[in-house]
Design a protein around this nucleic acid. Sequence first.
DNA 1: TTATCTGCAAACGCTTTGCATCGGA
DNA 2: TCCGATGCAAAGCGTTTGCAGATAA
Lengths: 149, 149
Amino acid sequence: MNIMTVIQAGELLRDAGLKRTPQRAAVLDYLARAGTHPTADEVFAAVNRRLPRASRATVYNALRALREAGLIQEVRFDAAVARYEVNLMPHHHFICRVCGGFEDVAAADVQPRVRLKDGYQVEGCELTVRGVCATCGERGQPRRARQRV
Amino acid sequence: MNIMTVIQAGELLRDAGLKRTPQRAAVLDYLARAGTHPTADEVFAAVNRRLPRASRATVYNALRALREAGLIQEVRFDAAVARYEVNLMPHHHFICRVCGGFEDVAAADVQPRVRLKDGYQVEGCELTVRGVCATCGERGQPRRARQRV
DNA sequence: TTATCTGCAAACGCTTTGCATCGGA
DNA sequence: TCCGATGCAAAGCGTTTGCAGATAA
């Protein structure tokens, strides 16, 4: 899913027991269209463009509410800053050692077989794959580090 | 490895091109003995117990130097706070949904098969397994959340 | 001897919170 | 109407940095 209509956003919010405010809808809509892993500040910038009176605190509050409702996911990769993405199909992440860029990896492309001690129940797993992306592999060193998305 | 002698710590530091200071040795020694995933603050508390004049800044500096030297590893799991562990055998992590505790999972118990797009080189991967640990599974709900280690 | 590290304090960046007001249901 | 969300500002927390003095090599 790459497009989330305003109506869909409203339904998702209502189903999650959250009020449908323009700010929350804007956050959800932006994340759904982004296709990247925006930071809270990037979400704020986008939301603020559409709703100039929207504040950082509101965006942070909205991100938390959406996360707790299970509508979006928080990823941290290496850094302290949180990044967000809508909950679509289960997937994993690839981080390029050279340019630092992030990419999604479809869960279908990964088959982790996990054996834990007796009594441990596995409910899911997240894989972070590290390596070098095709672009960086071609030219050896990137002219400049790719923007982390 | 669960024991790191002061001599070993000194060798590791020297091999990494770092000066062997009592503070750094204390950080390394504590992490090697810990068997958990201490936060910077927990490392500071432990180091400060042995070296009462050691400061937080020094511990943070030491943790960064050791990380950049590849002697220790930083893990973040979900949270903003960084946690540290010595670089031993490659391994993954298990996080209990109920008590929030972390545990190591030997890499041998995981066989991730990753297929990426052409040109992508995989250098390694970190798996975070989520579920319920044996203790929490037995008693349904924990009396109190286990300390995250 | 000298580059490096320590310790202190202050700054920094990201995130949360208190509170009065506003607005969706 | 009324509970919950917004917006502002200020605080909180983990971490980094500047700098003078100390120290390992």
